[in-house]
Design a protein around this nucleic acid. Structure first.
Lengths: 331, 331
DNA sequence: CTGAAAGCGCTAACAG
DNA sequence: CTGTTAGCGCTTTCAG
């Protein structure tokens, strides 16, 4: 350590701790220590410091989040998480690890150094990796299924059938699904269950694939304008795509909901849904509540009151706004 | 520890580490340890674990972020930060601490256990608190001024004068500032320098105060519709307020930019600015770049290549989109 | 199969 | 004013 680099063990600690004044260390010693530290590229070891000073009562929870188009959704998740931590009255730090889709394994090396981990946005590959390894830290999976880990979910099937039922009830006959490459199994389920329910009720369904972003939604919207037959309703896989599509429609002189109704997966900020040019009707993804459930689950795992394969599924609701009405009998 | 709670010191470690199989610990001992741990509410100490296993090479940087309407902006900041960390090839964890405006002091107790801290969104009170205390950890302030700490800034004055100059050049004569309660001195500077430049050039300036959110912007927009004299240009203090206002205008049958032009402080996601019902012309706040500068500054502070009162100011640019044109001579 | 012992890097008494 | 010492809670050889 910097101990070899000059004077003594504790003197160093005093100087580096900024307690030079009160302990009356002469300037000369201070500079000796400081320059030595600089030359050795000394970095104090925070783990040792924490251990020694007993700054150890607060839990550390790692949150893994994909650094792609889903990054903005982290805000809602963190909001829920922070709220629940506050409510729980526990001291708890959250450490964010962002990772590339399918690259979870590279980012997760040192899980053991946290009290618990919440893993979000895992792809099928990422899940395989998790299933095949043994971790000795409580792990909660956000919106994924597993028979090895604890998970917090929504009913992806219902997220597809509900909008389909609404379109049926509202007597639409030509739907289009605005979607993107599938990043996780649940997304396919949403698409397929919409497809099944809608076609089962005699609705003709087309699909438009674009990048999951406003830009992608915009391109998708332009493509939808040229679709034959022209659809009378859209199921969009994200708020971002919906906003892009809305803009494309408005440029094309198409009006939502008059010319076609739109229901989106409500995975964006509530304000953005409400203050879009046409406020967006959504199948609401309760991310804040899911985050809370994730946190609670880590605590239960830590206390041993639940055991690993354990799942919670949160109910989903439809929020009718301008872009699509409600079931006719509720209006 | 759980050591008293049954058998031995290291056996516990083996069992809790999940190495029971390979070390052939009999089931009976395992359960003994496990139940004891449960009853004692045992939580392994991550600091000790890190220290012992030398998982210590990675820096830990605390990021303090206000948990209010600015929460969504954390995404852009984190994006920049992550990118720079990746580029730097250093292992570095970021720990997010959200705090209530004016309550930084409550959240910051244990700064010593990080390698460095980046403090964002500090209010005047928060700054006072920081100035008056001595910390012995490298601290970087995001978008604040201080003669004690290192800071990364934009030219708040220019953020006000630039839109004013554009409005002048575009021959507007009646401006309105859509703003909210001031959360930090820089915001006042933006408003005042706009006011000074605009009134100096003979523009009549009104102000509308609302909450800094889309909802607030919407209410503000409605109020603007009834303003006498009716303005021909708006300077909005955030993308969120702009989006709300845009919606209010469109409901009132007003068109942007035909009836009035709008320039916003570009503090939201780029996509949201581009895909708003009318894409928003902004004085761009380079948050990602500022985050990068913050990270670089922590590293320089750590290596001793810079000393505390040190500032970096990033240039700001105007991005003309639909809601307001550029300087006439650039068009 | 399990216990004893050492030591990670640091800080806080307590003596010099 | 500065050095010595002990020990934070854990894991890891190494002997039983």
């Amino acid at each position: 350590l910097a101990r070899a680099a000059g004077v003594s063990p504790s003197t160093v600690s005093i100087v580096m701790g900024g307690k030079s004044e009160e302990r009356k260390i002469p300037m000369i010693t201070q500079t000796k220590v400081l320059t030595a530290a600089r030359e050795l590229g000394y970095r104090s070891n925070v783990a040792a410091k924490r251990l020694r000073t007993q700054m150890t009562e607060s839990l550390e929870i790692a949150v893994f989040w994909a650094s792609d188009f889903r990054a903005p959704m982290m805000v809602r998740f963190l909001r829920g998480l922070q709220e629940e931590i506050l409510d729980s009255k526990k001291r708890c730090e959250i450490v964010i690890h962002t990772y590339q889709n399918n690259m979870l394994k590279e980012s997760i090396l040192a899980l053991g150094i946290y009290n618990a981990a919440i893993i979000c946005n895992a792809s099928a590959d990422d899940l395989d990796f998790l299933e095949q390894n043994k971790f000795h830290v409580p792990i909660v999976l956000y919106n994924r299924h597993s028979d090895k880990f604890c998970t917090v979910n929504v009913d992806d099937n219902r997220m597809g059938t509900l909008p389909a039922e609404i379109f049926v009830a509202r007597e639409h006959s030509r739907a289009v699904i605005l979607t993107s490459d599938s990043y996780f199994p649940g997304m396919d389920i949403r698409v397929e269950s919409f497809l099944r329910t809608a076609t089962g009720a005699g609705i003709q369904v087309q699909q438009v694939h674009q990048e999951n972003s406003m830009a992608g939604g915009y391109e998708g919207g332009k493509r939808i304008c040229n679709l034959q037959p022209f659809p009378d309703c859209i199921f969009s896989m994200s708020d971002a795509m919906s906003i892009g599509a809305l803009r494309a429609f408005s440029e094309a002189g198409l009006h939502v909901p008059e010319n076609l109704e739109l229901i989106s997966i409500g995975n964006g900020d509530r304000e953005i849904e409400e203050y879009a040019s046409t406020s967006i009707s959504v199948v609401h993804l309760p991310m804040e509540d899911m985050a809370k459930a994730c946190f609670r689950m880590t605590q239960e795992l830590l206390s041993g009151s639940i055991e690993p394969p354990y799942s919670v599924e949160l109910p989903i609701v439809y929020r009718a706004r301008e872009s699509c009405g409600d079931f006719p009998d509720r209006q």
